[in-house]
C-alpha cells in the first residue's frame, strides 16, 4: 500500500504514534441466546501517524468514529484488530499492568468538564491522586507541584481546596488539562476539549493548549468537529467519515485545496462569520448512514455529489495527491 511506503519515510522524522489498520467493532447482541447478531463498525481500518511534537487534528461528524479512535489509542477501548505503535511498541496488545507504564506517557482531556471531574474531590486530592498513582514526586513536595500545575493552566494556587462545582466550565476544563499534564505526558488526546465552552472561553483554552504544547513539546491528537478550531491548532488534519479516513493533509493544504469531495462539503458547510464571504456551498443531502451496515465500496458515496457506479464496487485507498496530502477517492485521487 502506498500509505505504508509514505509512513516509512515519516519514520525517519521521528514518529511517536503509528496507527495501522485499526478496527474497533462494538458487538450488538440479540435474540434469546444473546448472540452477537451484528457489529457497529465504529472504526473500520484506519491508518495514520503522529510525529513527535506534532498536533494532528482529527475531524468528522458524529458517527465518524473520531472519538473511538482517540479512546482506542489510549486503550480506553480495546482494539478489535490492527496495531497501535507508540514509540516503537505495539501498545494495542500490552497486558494491563504493562500498559500502566504507558498511561503515564499518554493522557486524555475530555469534552465535558462537568462530567469528567469527580464532584467529591477537592482539586488537591484529584491532582495529588494523579501524581501518586504514577509515583511522581514525594508526598511532601506534592502540594508545590499541584500549585505549579494550576498556575501553568492559568488558575490560582489558592484554588487547592475547592471542589469542581465552585468553578465555571472554562476553569473546569483548565483543571482537566492540569490533571492530564500532572504526570508529564508526551502525548495528549484532546477529545473535543473546547466544544462545551462559550465562545469567549474557547479562545482562552485553545491558546492555553497552544502554549502548553510549545512549552512541554507535547504531541497531540486534537479531536473536534469545529473545523475552525482544528485549523487553528493543528499541523496536519485527518478527516474521518463513517469509520474510515477520507483525507489526510497538512493543515494549510487541507483548508486551501481539499481533495476529497467529503472534505470539500464539510468545509463549505461551516457558517462563516465573515458577512461578505460568498462561497459556493455544497449542501450534502441525506444523513450519515448507519455504521452497522455501511455502504459498499466508498462509504461516502450515498451522499457524494460526484459518485459513479464504480464507487459502490471499489473501496478507495488513500493515495498521495500532493506532498503529504492523501485522499481516498477514485474520482479525485485515481
Amino acid at each position: 500500500m502506498s500509505m505504508d511506503h509514505k509512513n516509512a519515510q515519516h519514520k525517519r522524522r521521528d514518529v511517536l504514534l503509528q496507527v495501522s489498520n485499526l478496527k474497533k467493532y462494538f458487538p450488538i447482541r440479540g435474540g434469546v441466546l444473546n448472540r452477537v447478531v451484528n457489529n457497529v463498525k465504529a472504526v473500520n481500518g484506519v491508518s495514520f501517524n503522529v510525529l513527535r511534537g506534532e498536533v494532528v487534528g482529527l475531524v468528522g461528524e458524529s458517527g465518524s468514529g473520531k472519538t473511538t479512535v482517540g479512546r482506542t489509542i489510549l486503550r480506553l477501548e480495546e482494539p478489535t484488530s490492527g496495531t497501535i505503535d507508540f514509540d516503537g511498541t505495539d501498545i494495542g496488545k500490552l497486558a494491563k499492568p504493562v500498559m500502566r507504564r504507558y498511561r503515564k506517557r499518554m493522557q486524555i482531556v475530555f469534552q465535558d468538564p462537568y462530567a469528567s471531574l469527580n464532584p467529591r474531590e477537592k482539586i488537591r486530592t484529584m491532582l495529588g491522586h494523579a501524581l501518586a498513582v504514577h509515583n511522581i514526586g514525594t508526598a511532601a513536595d506534592r502540594d508545590d507541584r499541584i500549585v505549579a500545575l494550576l498556575e501553568q493552566v492559568g488558575l490560582s494556587g489558592d484554588y487547592l481546596d475547592r471542589f469542581p462545582h465552585e468553578f465555571s466550565g472554562g476553569q473546569r476544563q483548565r483543571i482537566g488539562i492540569a490533571r492530564a499534564l500532572a504526570v508529564e505526558p508526551e502525548f495528549i488526546v484532546a477529545d473535543e476539549p473546547v466544544s462545551a465552552l462559550d465562545v469567549s472561553i474557547q479562545a482562552q483554552v485553545v491558546n492555553l493548549l497552544d502554549d502548553l504544547k510549545s512549552k512541554f513539546n507535547l504531541t497531540m491528537l486534537f479531536i473536534a468537529h469545529d473545523l475552525a478550531v482544528v485549523e487553528h491548532i493543528s499541523d496536519r488534519v485527518v478527516v474521518m467519515y463513517l469509520g474510515r479516513i477520507m483525507e489526510i493533509a497538512p493543515t494549510r493544504t487541507l483548508y486551501r485545496a481539499p481533495n476529497h469531495p467529503y472534505t470539500k462539503a464539510l468545509l463549505s458547510a461551516v457558517p462563516s462569520p465573515d458577512i461578505h464571504a460568498k462561497r459556493d456551498r455544497v449542501i450534502l443531502t441525506g444523513d450519515i448512514p448507519s455504521p452497522i451496515n455501511p455502504p459498499s465500496g466508498c462509504v461516502f458515496r450515498t451522499r457524494c455529489p460526484i459518485a459513479i457506479p464504480d464507487c459502490a464496487q471499489i473501496v478507495p485507498e488513500l493515495k498521495e495527491v500532493s506532498p503529504g496530502q492523501f485522499s481516498a477517492c477514485i474520482r479525485t485521487a485515481p
Binding site: D226, A228, H232
Partner: peptide, 15 residues
C-alpha cells in the same frame, strides 16, 4: 475571539 477558517497561514494567536 472566534477562530476563522482560512487563517492558518497567519498562525495568529486568538484574541
Amino acid at each position: 475571539s472566534i477562530p476563522r477558517m482560512g487563517e492558518s497561514e497567519k498562525k495568529l494567536r486568538l484574541q
